[in-house]
Design a protein around this nucleic acid. Structure first.
Length: 586
DNA sequence: TCCGTGGTACTA
DNA sequence: AAACTAGTACCACGGA
């Protein structure tokens, strides 16, 4: 059963039941308010446990359901699905792909409002409530767009793959909203301790902490520059040169190589300055509310299908502060990451049985080294990364031919992807996500170079931009398929966790809700995902369920491998740990 | 004072 | 000094 969710012209929410072919099997039902809508969803989910909720934007509809205590098992996010179908080469002949760009394409680029100040006071801020007209949630338009999706998938060259991709992408959208609602458990005390340990006690606003102040004095003394501000790269570079240091930049990779008394305090200062400006006390005050970090996750935010985030720098949580991510009392964190995900994905994509075998039951890089293709694990790693990123120089470029001899299928796949991109064509992931085409300016550069009067520099420029795009498409096939695996992993896990019993007895005692940030929410007593970073997840779980959760995490990874690659013999082993804080894991 | 850009550094 | 993929976000700086 499918239920379409949209709005009537009056602004009221409405739902209607459909069969899998898009034929109505029920009447349009108007819901007086969010509570009524949530009640309807709750009831329908009991009657039809396999129901799929079809709506324009999960980020718009799902928070209000969660707020009323209702989770949904499955959805179809029209905005995200549209973006995939628009570009997918598998559905290139569909009406959707051939239609001019419209509101469904614009919606994907719509500004998502939540940033520090709104999230501080309203974590469930609704992008639709900003007063702007958003036509995609009109119920008739929603039904029409969904039917265009059904047509595009049915008429595609691989309906099964696309269906899986759209289901996985939509499951990701549900998870993103749930992670934001639950939040990443964060100990401000521990965070404060990390900062104080590094730089000294928190100073008044505008002042440098004690440790950094001392370092500035040492830097100024070493450079004989009593007013130098080391936060200014321009000033710093001038000062370094006056002291006879011939640096071209102030970046640490370059400074590291220089022998001079200023280098040690300077590198130390830069490290602390980074910590403070990226994740210091003011970050903590802006982003940690009631012991939770709630960034805005953006599924499909990168062209490859990887997620992006807005606010708080959730994609760059430094290892230094991860000890502040702490389970609530009586709870645990289950931290898991997929080991060498991308090369394993490449092995499966290319049906390279030799490479798959190298990773079976072991670290894949160690497995490659063990077959004698290269001398060390480090060489295996740098060569594999180089193959997937398109390295041509250095150690990685030198090792590539040996990799190509041992694993011709895998290397041929990424080389083909690179050549396709260099021609300005698109490449496609395993499940059907296709890369965007280069911008018009790219084609201009190419045609300029093929004109009869093209100069040497025209040709150089064209070659370089062609190779650059080729590196993107080379990596796209691997990174996008890895992102698909991760979505399937999370979706399988979410289903398994929802079926687990609760870990506390607060539910059975009704009014006796457990204290703490989760009391009264849909996550109370239940394991729930709280973080995701490309190939790594964190689940927050009642302690008694932690081992069961860890087992489900492993089973979900196996399921994801089978969902994508069937019986092809490739492993997706995990590193998994049950811990109290994030820094304890690996 | 506001806004865009360059430089830097952190993540997988 | 660039490079070998994908991101976010800070600061300083200079021009409107």
């Amino acid at each position: 059963m499918h239920f379409v969710v949209g709005r009537l012209s009056s602004g009221a929410a409405a739902t209607q039941a459909f069969d899998a072919d898009g034929a109505a099997v029920g009447d349009l039902i108007r819901h007086a308010d969010d509570a009524a809508l949530a009640g309807f969803v709750r009831h329908s989910s009991v009657v039809s446990p396999a129901a799929r909720w079809v709506w324009d934007d999960t980020a718009r509809w799902y928070p209000r359901l969660l707020r009323h205590g209702v989770r949904v098992a499955r959805c179809h996010d029209l905005r995200l699905a549209h973006a995939i179908l628009r570009l997918s080469t598998l559905a290139a002949s569909s009406a959707l792909a051939k239609s001019p760009h419209g509101v469904w394409d614009a919606a994907a680029e719509v500004e998502r409002p939540p940033t520090a100040h709104t999230t501080l006071f309203d974590v469930d801020v609704d992008p639709a409530d900003d007063g702007a007209d958003v036509p995609t949630d009109d119920v008739d338009e929603t039904v029409a767009e969904w039917r265009r999706h059904l047509d595009a998938v049915r008429g595609s060259s691989a309906p099964g793959r696309l269906r899986l991709l759209l289901a996985a992408e939509s499951a990701g959208a549900l998870i993103a909203v749930e992670m934001r609602a639950a939040g990443l458990p964060w100990s401000v005390d521990r965070h404060d301790a990390v900062l104080t340990e590094a730089v000294g006690p928190r100073p008044p606003v505008g002042a440098r902490p004690a440790r950094m102040h001392d370092l500035v004095l040492a830097i100024r003394a070493a450079l004989d520059d009593s007013t130098l501000n080391p936060d200014s790269p321009q000033e710093l570079l001038r000062s370094l040169r006056r002291s006879g240091i011939n640096a071209s930049s102030t970046s640490q990779w370059e400074l590291r190589e220089i022998e001079h008394p200023v280098i040690e305090p300077l590198l130390e200062y830069k490290k602390l300055a980074r910590l403070l400006s990226a994740n210091g006390w003011s970050w903590m005050e802006a982003w940690i509310v009631d012991g939770r970090f709630r960034p805005d996750y953006v599924p499909g935010g990168a062209a490859t299908g990887r997620w992006a985030t807005n606010g708080g720098g959730a994609l760059q949580l430094p290892k230094q502060v991860r000890s502040a991510v702490r389970a609530d009392p009586g709870w645990k964190l289950v931290v898991a990451d997929a080991a060498q995900l991308e090369p394993r994905i490449l092995a499966a994509l290319s049906a390279d049985t030799a490479m798959a075998a190298a990773g079976r039951g072991t670290d894949l890089y160690a497995g490659i080294q063990a077959t004698g293709v290269v001398e060390t694990r480090a060489h295996a790693k740098v060569a594999m990364l180089g193959a997937m990123y398109g390295a041509t120089t250095g150690e990685s470029g030198r090792l590539l031919p040996r990799l190509a001899r041992a694993y011709p299928r895998a290397i041929a796949l990424v080389e083909d992807a690179a050549r396709t991109g260099e021609r300005g064509e698109s490449v496609t992931s395993w499940l059907g996500r296709s890369s965007p085409l280069p911008p018009p300016s790219w084609f201009d550069v190419q045609s300029l170079a093929s004109a009869p009067d093209a100069s040497e520099s025209d040709e150089r420029r064209a070659r370089s931009s062609a190779r650059e795009w080729g590196r993107f498409t080379r990596n796209f096939v691997v990174q996008s398929t890895a992102a698909e695996w991760a979505l399937c992993w999370m979706a399988e896990l979410r289903t398994a966790l929802m079926a687990l019993p609760t870990g506390t007895d607060s539910d059975s005692h009704g009014a006796q809700a457990s204290p703490g940030p989760l009391a009264g929410t849909v996550f109370d007593g239940r394991p729930h995902q709280v973080f995701f970073l490309h190939d790594e997840i964190v689940v927050h779980t009642p302690a008694p369920l932690a081992d069961a959760v860890a087992e489900q995490v492993r089973l979900a990874a196996e399921s994801a491998g089978r969902l994508l690659f069937g019986a092809f013999p490739v492993d997706f082993p995990l590193g998994a740990a049950v811990v109290d804080d994030y820094a304890e894991a690996k």
